[in-house]
Simulated assay, not measured.
Amino acid sequence: MLAWALRPSPVPVNTAHVRVGPFVDSVVEEGRTQLRETWNVSVPIAGYLQRVDLEVGDSVEEGAVLFQLEPSPAPALDVRTRQQAEDNLQAAQARLQAAQANLETARADRRFAEAEYQRYRQLHQRNLISTAELEQRQNQRDRLRALENSAASGVEVARFEVESARALLAVAIGQRSEADQPVLQVHAPVSGLVLTRYRCCEGSVSAGEPILELGRLADLEIQVDLLSMDAVRLHPGLDVVITGWGGEPLAGSVRRIAPAGFTRTSALGVDEQRVPVIVDFAGELDRGELGIGSGYRVDVEFVIWEAEEVMQIPTSALFRHRGEWAVFVIEEGRASLRSVETGRRQGLVSQIVAGLTEGEVVITHPGERVSEGIRVAPDE
């Protein structure tokens, strides 16, 4: 009885069961929505601005009149200003010709790629070429089609620059329109929404002064600044889950990982190396119907790896022992030291590759009182 009374009492411990279930290795970070491209519409020449009726959020069509300019009450136009206007017009016309030439070249390349793809598809149907060769031709065709669309956009932009340069020259040489009509009308370069209105009221404006900023919600994307050690685990095309925006989770994918990072000081005063990662929404979503705009906060989960049947335990049960990972397993009321081989780790859960079996009980947060063979009292 004396020996029984003096023997050490069991050490109380926290425990967890080894279980097999779904496991997701992901990185969750806060991001901000932004537009891939925006258009700042500014005043081409100095003049007198009429009142801008457009407001933030208004929709405009390509070619619509955004605002109108009149000559300044006391214009100071001289020979030098006229010569500059003529030079700007010639440069704009040269850019337009170059853009049209690029468009014709892109169209010819696209037509050739389309013909090559059709020919390779027929060969593939006859089992004369591999599927990889057919997909290579298809990717080449899609890339040239995108280049053609980009060249067409360049032609439209160059044509708009020529029209603006002609209007500037008309004002510089003193041409006036009919009575009670503005000298210059500035048109929308693209169809989209008014994002920012820098100036609304009438008054004199200088050349280059911004008036409106336009954008298209169809070009909405997300920028996430990830820690560099997380960014190296990603790759373009990786699936993501977008949450925290106020609705149901949305799907997306990584489009671009920036090759250069930057330093940001956290709220705790720690310098962190961050890398910008650009995420695209998946599929054709109606951004206007969802209510998402530019500058909105979202949560982005980068799904790096996932599986359905993975053995896992709480990360708090792991510790280093003689250079290896180990855990304490409860066997017949005593702590048994066992080496394990770990895999992926996600937050508070770690994957176990070898060393444990499903259903065993491990000790979490083992303290200094827990050692090999000691009696333990698991929590209930």
Results as ranks from 00 to 15, higher is better:
M1Q: 08
L2E: 14
A3W: 05
A3C: 09
V11R: 11
N14M: 06
N14Q: 11
T15P: 06
G21M: 06
S26H: 12
S26F: 07
E29T: 13
G31N: 00
L35H: 08
R36T: 07
V41R: 03
V43Y: 02
D53C: 04
G57K: 03
D58P: 03
A64F: 04
Q68L: 10
P75D: 05
D78Y: 03
R82N: 05
N88D: 14
L89D: 11
A91T: 10
A91Y: 09
A99P: 09
A101E: 11
N102P: 01
A106E: 07
A106D: 11
R110T: 14
R110E: 09
A115C: 05
Y117Q: 13
R126I: 03
R126H: 12
L128H: 14
T131E: 13
L134S: 08
Q140F: 08
Q140N: 14
Q140M: 14
D142A: 11
E148D: 10
E148N: 02
A151D: 09
G154Y: 00
A158S: 13
E161Y: 01
V162S: 09
A167D: 10
L168R: 15
L169G: 02
S177K: 12
E178S: 13
D180S: 08
V183R: 08
L184E: 08
A188D: 04
C201N: 15
G208K: 00
I211P: 02
E213I: 04
L214D: 11
R216H: 11
R216N: 12
A218S: 15
A218M: 13
L220M: 04
Q223P: 00
Q223I: 15
L226W: 00
L238E: 08
D239I: 07
V241S: 06
L250V: 01
F262L: 07
D280H: 13
D280T: 08
S294Q: 12
Y296P: 00
E301A: 14
F302N: 03
V303W: 01
W305Y: 05
E306T: 13
E309N: 14
Q312R: 14
S316K: 06
S316V: 03
F319R: 01
H321F: 11
G323Q: 08
E324D: 11
W325H: 11
E331L: 06
R345M: 13
I352T: 03
V353S: 09
E358L: 05
E360K: 04
E360W: 10
V361E: 15
V362K: 01
I363P: 07
T364M: 04
V370N: 08
